[in-house]
Simulated scan of single mutants.
Amino acid sequence: MRRRTLLKGAAVGGVAALGAGFWALPTSPRPAAVSLDGARQVLDELQGRALVATRGWSPQEVFNHCAQSIEYSMDGYPELKPAWFRHSVGPAAFAVFSVRGAMRHPLDEVIPGAAPLAEPASQELALQRLQAAFERFAGYDGELQPHFAYGALDHAEYAEAHVMHLYNHLSLIRPA
Rank of each mutant, 00 (worst) to 15 (best):
Q68T: 12
P112Q: 08
G101T: 06
V99D: 13
V89L: 11
P106F: 01
F94K: 01
A115H: 13
N64R: 13
G101R: 03
L80W: 04
I111K: 00
V99K: 05
G113Y: 06
P112L: 01
G101Q: 07
A114S: 15
A92I: 08
S73Q: 02
A93S: 04
F94P: 01
Y77A: 00
A83D: 15
V89Y: 00
Y72P: 11
H87P: 10
R104H: 15
P91N: 11
L107Q: 10
K81H: 10
Q68V: 07
N64V: 06
P112Y: 12
P112W: 15
P112A: 02
M74L: 04
A114D: 14
A95Q: 14
M103R: 09
S69F: 00
L107A: 05
Y72A: 01
A83V: 14
G101I: 06
C66D: 11
E71N: 06
L80Y: 05
P82F: 01
E71T: 13
P78E: 09
H87R: 12
A115W: 09
G113R: 11
I70L: 05
G76T: 07
L80K: 02
Y72I: 13
S69A: 07
L80R: 05
V99E: 11
V110S: 14
A67E: 11
A95G: 09
V99G: 11
L80N: 05
E71I: 09
A95P: 07
H105S: 14
Y72N: 10
V110Q: 11
P106R: 01
R104V: 15
R86A: 04
Y77W: 09
R100K: 10
A83N: 12
R104A: 15
P78C: 10
M103E: 09
S69G: 08
P82A: 01
F97R: 06
P106C: 05
C66P: 14
G101C: 10
K81P: 14
V62I: 14
I70W: 00
V99S: 13
C66Y: 07
W84G: 00
I111P: 00
E79S: 10
A102C: 06
P112F: 08
M103W: 07
V96A: 02
G113F: 09
P82N: 08
E109P: 02
A95N: 13
G90W: 00
E61R: 06
S88P: 12
K81E: 13
A93F: 06
A92F: 03
E109V: 10
H87E: 15
R86E: 08
K81C: 06
D75S: 03
M103K: 04
S88A: 10
R100F: 06
S73H: 06
S69E: 07
G76Y: 00
A115Q: 15
V96D: 03
C66Q: 04
E79N: 10
E61H: 05
F97W: 05
S98V: 08
V110R: 06
P91M: 02
A92K: 03
E61Q: 15
